[in-house]
Design a protein around this nucleic acid. Structure first.
Lengths: 347, 347
DNA sequence: AAGCCAATCTAAATCGTTTACGCAAACGAC
DNA sequence: GTCGTTTGCGTAAACGATTTAGATTGGCTT
């Protein structure tokens, strides 16, 4: 059942039917209702392929997921992010198109999506420092919103981000207040922009208290359980071991906990741990009582905000770039406690 | 730059240009090359909206992700699944469209995708027993492949699945061989078809050795860390506690481990644990040495196979339904060991 | 030299919408 | 009763590709 057939059945022109269904004013309310009910009865649904061609809009947005072919690691926050954004798209009649592409093909993919008219805009995931995609997209004129930011870009662009620096600064201060002096940072890969910001927050907090910044306390790895475990093993086997760990993700935190408990120590008593909690639906930080002390910011919420921003940008491409900085909340859990006394003295 | 313009520049008709670029035989090889190089030079890319309308194909497949609005849990395996399938689509010039929809709207979504011509086929995720979506899709005539199976359906349909029953049977037998007699099953929610099959594998193995099937040993929950912890807490605080845990997921296994170590026990020595390992990229079971003994089957691989099957089905809608049953491999890790002696005797 | 076929290309219809423009009837003002 | 102005609807041309049906050319057969 297409528009022409429906119009014929009603003894009307396709134009009128189209206008009636799309809410245009130049159609009698009586006929409009007749048309709407008929459309319902024959359950007519406009062909999206035709709409897209006729309007010149894709009614779709793209999420390009970079797949690091070496590490083969999908970003675990990704599924929650799209859970949030997908809802927004659905409400607005947009499709969400996912492209999983190897790192090096990402820019080609954008060009393609643009010139074939497959999408009206894109979300940029996991920006690196000085990320070239931003320049590319700006030049292409394809509307986009970045989840995160990219230090070093002189362009103004739309973004939604968490205040990673501040979150890690606060977490570090919290540990310092508890008396910890050897705080290990288990960071994400520092090619990622957010990881750089986190490190800065951490070092800023240390410097503010006049505490030396020891390189051996910092590791920068993929955010998996195993890498967290490994980092903690290293940090704990030093002659004067770390007394606290600040982790970039829940999974790393779980690895750190495994290392702690594997040594017969108790997390929260012997060794303190703070994680950054993306509030992933399948990785909740406990139920009523949080397991880890954490700085928390919902990735799903970020996805929602980014999607809303993108739809706005698509509708008003010439508006000034928008920014949205989310603050993470500090959640006190069972994984932190005062630094053991003797560890406060120099070895 | 569109087809007409390109044709004009070349002094040819759109028809010839179209045919040349699409590899049709009725065009002189010399002109074909001239056309191809010109297309390249002006970097012409055919408008996908027009192709779709003209050919009547969507060149897209849909993944409908049910979002349980109560639990709000995204399926954690989902991102790896699409990493596998996305690659296949990209290679074949198909787009992947994701719809995240509340449970109860799922069938409406299928109808919509179908009648608006947005997709050529869909992947059905997370089938329940007696899943009504299968009937719906069959009636709609929309090509589909199920990731998993649905017991109770009298229809023959395309599926890719892991032999869940066998995997859990083998895992249980492995524990029995180690002398364990009180093996707890930490299962997924048993509305899911795969969870039912896993339970059957477990009970089959027990029955085959004449071991009674104790209901208190079985829990059926969401597959999260916290639920795993809770199940283990319950199983370990019985008067005669379980000596082994068989978990449906890595996350549950991590929760179980936390409960074990929280009691000062050691996993692999005091309590054995086997997990089902979906081989998720961000949740690897150790690096060189596996942490958990596990039955492993790659979800990413399943995604790839399902996508390939779907594309075949789309190309030959009348072929007989295809089935692909994958076997999980048993990986020996550090989380299993002989049952403690005294625990073999009845209490 | 007429007829036929294969090779190569073109013209025009088609997919199912939207939309610019046109037009008649009804309406109100004077 | 005439003249704008709404109101309500229709005609036809887009949108940018594919595809069907034909046209033209040249070579080959007889």
């Amino acid at each position: 059942m297409n528009l022409k057939e429906l119009a014929a059945k009603l003894g009307l022109s396709p134009t009128t039917v189209s206008r009636a269904l799309n809410g245009y004013p130049e159609v009698n309310e009586a006929t409009r209702e007749r048309i709407i009910s008929a459309a319902h009865r024959h359950n007519y649904r406009p062909n999206s392929r035709a709409i897209r061609l006729a309007t010149g809009r894709a009614l779709a947005v793209g999420h390009v997921i970079p797949l690091d072919t070496r590490s083969e690691i999908m970003n675990p926050i990704f599924s929650d992010f799209i859970a949030g954004s997908g809802e927004v798209y659905a409400r607005n009649g947009f499709d969400m198109i996912l492209s999983v592409v190897p790192d090096e093909l990402e820019e080609t993919t954008y060009r393609d999506l643009m010139s074939r008219g497959t999408v009206d805009g894109v979300i940029v995931h996991a920006p690196k420092t000085n990320d070239s995609r931003i320049r590319t997209l700006k030049d292409l004129g394809l509307p986009f919103v970045v989840h995160g930011r990219s230090t070093g870009s002189d362009i103004d662009y739309n973004w939604v981000d968490v205040n990673n620096r501040r979150a890690f600064q606060r977490a570090t201060e919290f540990l310092l207040d508890l008396g910890h002096r050897r705080i290990a940072l288990v960071n994400g890969l520092e090619v990622m922009d957010f990881a750089v910001r986190r490190r800065i927050g951490y070092t800023d907090a240390l410097s503010a208290r006049g505490i030396a910044n020891e390189p051996w306390l910092i590791t920068s790895t993929e955010m998996t359980e195993v890498k967290g475990w490994r980092a903690a093993e290293a940090g704990l086997s030093q002659p004067v071991p770390a007394t606290a760990f600040l982790c970039a993700s829940m999974l790393q935190g779980m690895g750190v906990r495994r290392a702690i408990e594997g040594r017969g120590l108790k997390m929260g008593r012997d060794i303190s741990v703070i994680i950054f909690d993306d509030d992933l639906s399948y990785l909740r930080n406990g139920e009523d009582v949080p397991i880890f002390t954490a700085t928390r910011s919902s990735v799903k919420e970020a996805g929602k905000l980014a999607a809303e921003m993108l739809l706005q940008v698509i509708n008003q491409p010439d508006a000034a770039p928008q920014h949205r900085l989310l603050e993470a909340e500090l959640i006190i859990g069972q994984s932190t406690g005062p630094a053991p006394l003797q560890s406060n003295q120099p070895a």
